[in-house]
Design a protein around this nucleic acid. Sequence first.
DNA 1: TTGTATGCGTTATCAG
DNA 2: CTGATAACGCATACAA
Lengths: 355, 355
Amino acid sequence: MVKVTQQDIAKVMGVSVMTVSNAFNRPDQLSADLRRRVLERAVKMGYTGPDAVARQLRSGRTNTFAVVFEERLSYAFSDPFSVVWLTAFSEVMEARRASIMLLSVPAGDTEALSAIQDAAVDGIAGLCGDQPAMVRARERGLPTVYCTMGHPLGAEPLAGDYVAIDDYAAAVEVGQHLRRLGHTRVSLLVETAHRGQAVLREYRPAELSGLVAVYDSVGYFDTFHRVRGVLDGLGDADVTIVVAGANSRASGQAAGALVLDRALPPTAVVAVSDVMALGFMDACRQRGLEPGRDVSVVGFDDLPESAAAGLTTIHQPVRDKGRLAAELLLDPERTERRIILPHELIVRSSTRPVA
Amino acid sequence: MVKVTQQDIAKVMGVSVMTVSNAFNRPDQLSADLRRRVLERAVKMGYTGPDAVARQLRSGRTNTFAVVFEERLSYAFSDPFSVVWLTAFSEVMEARRASIMLLSVPAGDTEALSAIQDAAVDGIAGLCGDQPAMVRARERGLPTVYCTMGHPLGAEPLAGDYVAIDDYAAAVEVGQHLRRLGHTRVSLLVETAHRGQAVLREYRPAELSGLVAVYDSVGYFDTFHRVRGVLDGLGDADVTIVVAGANSRASGQAAGALVLDRALPPTAVVAVSDVMALGFMDACRQRGLEPGRDVSVVGFDDLPESAAAGLTTIHQPVRDKGRLAAELLLDPERTERRIILPHELIVRSSTRPVA
DNA sequence: TTGTATGCGTTATCAG
DNA sequence: CTGATAACGCATACAA
């Protein structure tokens, strides 16, 4: 069962390869009759149509775009933010008849980085701009779009296009909101910045500047702006940072155990994502504490489920991020290629004035 | 910014193209020193590494596998069955360093079928074996794996490898289970078989054989075996079939409205999927009816959330389906290529003897 | 309307 | 250890 090519058909029929090629791609370039005969013969010879890879090499386009995740793909399918983003992204791609490739390059897995080199795609999108995979993609000269800032505060954004929000400004609003409500003892729940870092550990005020410096230097910690913003917004409040683990509901819950079960728990908690905030709220309820009444909670993202949970949070247009990321990849001609979308502080029942 | 190739580097350095290629792929084929110089020069000239497409053409392998859905991709990311399957599938692919391409070929969208022809992949997996996209994939000569049977009962399975369960046998068990509990007035909730078919319509006993024949002939209705099995298992019960719409919670709920709000509602309802069954249970509760007590409900699949809901259902190993599908694609040498996995009737609180 | 030559970028083969 | 040649399958540019 050897592979049949256009050349074979051409040889057998005594026509040129070009005629065969045209029979498949440009019906107007040959007589209807000849075309019919070519196609018939092709079927008869077991020809299965133009080879996708050869065509891509020749045309220089794959019409395929990759999405790269720092986590395993199971995360991409289960994290609510990721699912909403992916849905919007795929809707645009489908409408434009482009294909989607899913890539996973976990932080620290250098071998997996070769997936970026080997991806036959016309562009790559990623949630976080400074993850190694995105850096490599740019080195490869691929068009890239990322969806959260990941550079030191005040520095120039990284190379590549982006669709993001002003995370720092949003976080400042969160901090100020809590301060206005009178909260001065606050815990900030963050995800683990990189492998090897202690999971679920709390950093006390004295250690804070050191930790923040670490986050700033790690590079690919995309929620750094949120950390800084919350701290700045809170001013001189008594803050601790809890490194809670991966970005998940379970991490938020675990952080709750660390923070709630002590003599003087914080009066307010800020998580850098809604999933962690929701997990923290789970931990509250397990202890008979009512979010809002007994402890204020704030998240980031405004997931679909956050409204029902009464979670005060920063709304960000997740769907628009996904949609625009796809559009930027598909339309190289588009001029606005570094987009900051609006955000909004949504105050719900989970934050109240300190008692 | 013109593209730099190995040829350019070779020319500039006065070495052969092969040496440059070897510098990247086979370090042992040239001196360490020369290799270093080549790589340095490559960077200096802006060479971004071997071109993925060219390499694929040359090697004849893409190391990429597609998953094709009959629905929009948003369904793939939101339907619980799909998410579990996809998770297992991707875990295997990731472990083997293969990439995943997601394709959507909605039923009836013939233009979208070209995506199958244009996919640069080494194989394709799909939930349903007889969907047009899978047929086309086989015509193209690609290895395929599907995960539910989709051929007329008693006929030979379609071409291609599969990982499925014996849906007919499972459905017979469901029918017998209900019959044993004394249920003789039953509604069967099915998803819409094809476009153009009436959405949310109930078929009365007299119309049944006609409808079943339609489903049998439509071809790509993969739950046909379940319909037949439930009917056979129920024997001479008084059955109606409700075509509920797409496979979703909302459809199940809508079907509930049709079936529950009348003088003589069924004493039991079978849905061909858990999501529809769960939706139907929602409809019950909205009317103050308790599933199990007031009306028995059975589903198919045994999703993670079904246990908590107390839903009697057919357990099928969804994760194993996804895992094995990936393994079949990755291991062409494997001999067992048509796998029937075990299923199990899980009786929970949603089915009870008829009052 | 049809055919010819050529190149897309890489790597296997085989010779030196 | 290094290099020349060919081929992977197709489609563009141009000629007939």
